[in-house]
């Protein structure tokens, strides 16, 4: 049976579905007998979701959008004059 260390090393590929059937099966056998590793798997997955959802909320603030717009307009006007 694989140990916790191997289990955690394999988590990434397991979640991505990249493990071969045999390895995947022995990992699942480990999970059945090791609640801490299930807790680890669940919190590992949650971490990704939480961070993604939080960091994806970033919008361009209105004042930045305006600055960018006038900056681009200026740049364009300059180009057209040339």
């Amino acid at each position: 049976m694989i140990c916790c260390k191997e289990c955690i090393d394999l988590l990434y590929d397991y979640i991505e579905g990249l493990l071969d059937q045999e390895t995947s099966k022995s990992l699942e056998e480990h999970f059945e007998e090791c609640p801490p590793c299930i807790a680890f798997l669940n919190t590992y997955k949650s971490t990704t979701t939480l961070c993604r959802d939080t960091l994806n909320q970033i919008e361009i603030p209105d004042e930045v959008r305006h600055t960018l717009q006038s900056f681009l307009k200026e740049n364009k006007d300059q180009q057209e004059k040339k």
Binding site: C3, C4, K5, P36, C37, I38, A39, F40, T43, K45
Partner: peptide, 13 residues
């Protein structure tokens, strides 16, 4: 022996 040393809590739910 390759087993986890710390206590792991499942807070995911």
């Amino acid at each position: 022996t390759g087993f986890q040393q710390e206590k792991i809590q499942d807070w995911s739910e």
